[in-house]
Design a protein around this nucleic acid. Structure first.
Lengths: 210, 210
DNA sequence: TAGATTGTTAATCGATTAACAATC
DNA sequence: TAGATTGTTAATCGATTAACAATC
């Protein structure tokens, strides 16, 4: 029961609010005003109040926001209070790095299967063949598929993931994959990120932080 | 000698143009219209013409754009025709993955130094102590610093990088680092990326591809 | 020349910022 | 009550889209 559609600009800011609220909580802060949060995040106070109000009135007029309450609210809005089952498809550099990266602050990110074109053991991990992916997904519901396979196979794997009803795809392949509109895709395009940076290194006047 | 300031929205699209032009070239296409490029990229034809015109008139009225010429132009606009010296600071999962990821399509990305809090050999690579970073930078000019060190040390390393006059910082630490305004920073925040995806997995109606 | 498609200006849309009434 | 700060509406700004004249 939400007032309006949430723009992607707001969605991108939610994790930043979350991060800063975690910091504040760790520092023992109890209250925070939109003005103070503005200084931390670099967003304007107006924007912060606007953003938070999309989801409900978490503040108290004349006081501000209670750090604990607001953090809890945002945790639930994003869905970080829940557990997620994940598969990793493509166990090369990136796949392995994400697997070992343990700093995701969801309740649980449970990697239930790892797949690659080459099956077998890899660094002590059981890696299944991608050929088994489709049948695996029939038996095991998966929330997040981490797609870290070369471009050539990315789309066909994505098709399997769609067929296998995964709830979201986190794509690291440097290509635009397409699936039915009911599955969100978030892509991390490392090359594109570097290229933007290189552009700015030559055109610093076009650069604006944040 | 540019007409206006380039908005970050345009800068984010440049690498996508580049990627699709590479595809087209590989497929042996010689010409492309803004309309056709629109179908590939998902941007509107209008937007594409608008974007390209920020940098000059690369097209030919009544004909379209020559793939080869346009690709070359964008390569130079971004700066992909040049070589870059890089250092990696933090040689954990992410630092190593980026190091091994060889698909960056710049002329050369030469990793001239790898630094970590723990010095020594790691997987056959010489890893220097971060204590040596400042003096290293005095001797060796660096274009891109790849910052993949834990949050606790990210800002102090960034300060060294600024002092050492690196030309750009590619940040993988999940924090907002601050440096003088003459150094562009591009952050890859993996957790935030995942959190956005998780949000959309619960709020698919808010999701809009691209 | 006629047809096509760019380059560019004008109109629209959406997101950000400013302002202020509500209220703790 | 007076002071502070939110929640929310209105104004502004900037980016996207539409339109069309220029021209190949």
């Amino acid at each position: 029961m939400r007032k309006t559609r949430i723009s992607s600009a707001v969605v991108r800011r939610l994790p930043k609010y979350y991060r800063h609220l975690c910091d504040l909580e760790r520092m023992g802060e109890e209250k925070i005003s939109s003005q103070q949060l503005s200084e931390k995040t670099g967003f304007t106070a107006s924007q912060i109040r606007q953003d938070l109000n999309h989801f409900g009135g978490f503040g108290q007029q004349g006081y501000g926001y209670r750090v604990g309450d607001l953090k809890k609210a945002i945790t639930e809005i994003i869905g970080l209070d829940k557990s997620y089952k994940a598969v990793i498809v493509g166990y090369g550099n990136i796949g392995q790095a994400i697997h070992k990266y343990k700093r995701f602050d969801v309740k649980e990110l449970d990697v239930v299967g790892i797949f690659d074109t080459k099956a077998g053991k890899k660094h002590g991990q059981e890696v299944k063949s991608v050929k088994e992916l489709a049948s695996f997904l029939k038996e095991n519901p998966v929330d997040v598929a981490i797609l870290a396979i070369p471009v050539e196979h990315a789309q066909e794997v994505a098709d399997m993931l769609e067929e296998g009803m995964v709830r979201a795809i986190w794509n690291f392949a440097p290509t635009d994959i397409k699936v039915g509109f009911r599955i969100p895709i978030e892509s991390v395009h490392l090359s594109e990120s570097l290229y933007s940076l290189i552009f700015y290194s030559w055109n610093i006047d076009d650069y604006k932080e944040k």
